[in-house]
C-alpha cells in the first residue's frame, strides 16, 4: 500500500469486543435510522443493499461439534492511510480533519465507484436506487444527516454530527471542545448496543478507555498487513477469530 499514515492530535477509534457481540443487529438498526438510510424492500440482495454498519458471521470452519461462530460488526474502518482517498478523482472523500474520520462529501461525488473498488473492507455503498421512505415515514428523518440521492457513494462517518454536537455542548459547558470527556462523543451504534460490546473514544487520549483497550494482547485490526492503519480495533480471546483478521498462510 502506497502512501503514509496521516496523524492527527485526536484519533477517534472504535474497539469492538467480538466475544460479547450476539449478532442481534441493534447496531445496524441504530445506524440506519440515525443516518437516514432508507428502508430497502429487497434487502436480501446484498449487492444492492446499503448498510453502513454490517454484522458478519464468522466461523472456524470446523464440523460439528467443534464448530464455533462469532459476529463481527463492521463500520468504516477510518483508515489512517485510506485506499479510497487516493483513488477519488474529485476529492469527494478525504482524510484531512483532526479526529481522523474519513469524510464523504456527497455533492462532490460523481459516482465513479473507484473508492468502492479500492476499499478492502467493503464499507462503501453505491446508491443504486432513489431513497424512498414509505408515505409519511420521511417525517422521522434525522436532521443530523442529509439524504443522499442515487448515484453517489456513502459510508459510515462515525456519526460525525455527534462530534459536532459534543463540541458545542462542551463549549456551552465552558469545557475544551478539543479535549472531550470520555463518552461525551460516541456513535449511535456504540450508544445503543445492548451487550456493551462496542467502545468509542480518542485512542490518543489516556483518559479515554479505548486508549488502553487497543493495547490489549487480544486486540487486532482487520487486514493489518495492508498497512491501512485502521482506527477500528477488535478484541477476541479466541485465537481463531484473531487469525481471521488477516489473510494468514497456514504456516503462519
Amino acid at each position: 500500500m502506497s502512501g503514509q499514515k496521516k496523524e492527527f492530535p485526536i484519533t477517534w477509534g472504535m474497539v469492538i469486543d467480538i466475544d460479547k457481540c450476539t449478532g442481534c443487529g441493534a447496531c445496524m438498526a441504530s445506524c440506519q435510522t440515525e443516518n437516514n438510510v432508507e428502508p430497502q424492500r429487497e434487502a436480501s440482495n446484498k449487492l444492492r443493499a446499503t448498510s453502513w454498519m454490517l454484522v458478519y458471521e464468522l466461523t472456524n470452519d470446523k464440523a460439528f461439534p467443534n464448530h464455533d461462530i462469532a459476529y463481527l460488526p463492521r463500520p468504516c474502518q477510518q483508515c489512517g492511510n485510506p485506499p479510497c482517498v487516493s483513488v477519488c478523482p474529485v476529492i469527494a472523500t478525504d482524510k484531512n480533519e483532526n479526529g481522523g474520520i474519513v469524510s464523504q462529501v456527497y455533492p462532490r461525488c460523481i459516482g465513479c465507484r473507484y473508492c468502492v473498488a479500492a476499499c478492502p473492507y467493503h464499507v462503501r455503498y453505491f446508491g443504486w436506487y432513489d431513497p424512498i421512505w414509505p408515505e409519511g415515514m420521511d417525517k422521522t428523518l434525522s436532521p443530523m444527516t442529509s439524504v443522499r440521492p442515487r448515484g453517489v457513494v456513502e459510508k459510515c462517518t462515525f456519526c460525525h454530527h455527534r462530534w459536532t454536537q459534543a463540541k458545542d455542548a462542551a463549549r456551552v459547558a465552558g469545557k475544551d471542545p478539543e479535549n472531550l470527556d470520555d463518552g461525551a462523543y460516541v456513535t449511535s451504534c456504540v450508544q445503543n448496543c445492548p451487550s456493551g460490546a462496542l467502545a468509542f473514544g480518542d485512542i490518543k487520549n489516556p483518559k479515554h478507555k479505548v486508549h488502553e483497550l487497543v493495547k490489549s494482547p487480544y486486540a487486532f485490526r482487520l487486514l493489518e498487513r495492508l498497512g491501512t492503519e485502521t482506527q477500528v480495533y477488535y478484541i477476541s480471546r479466541r485465537e481463531w477469530v484473531r487469525k481471521l483478521g488477516d489473510n494468514y498462510l497456514k504456516s503462519e
Partner: peptide
C-alpha cells in the same frame, strides 16, 4: 441501561408503517 433492541428502535418509524 442505555441499550436498545432493533425492535425497540423501530418504535418511531413504525408510526408510519404501511
Amino acid at each position: 441501561c442505555g441499550g436498545v433492541s432493533a425492535l425497540a428502535r423501530s418504535e418511531v418509524y413504525m408510526l408510519y408503517s404501511p
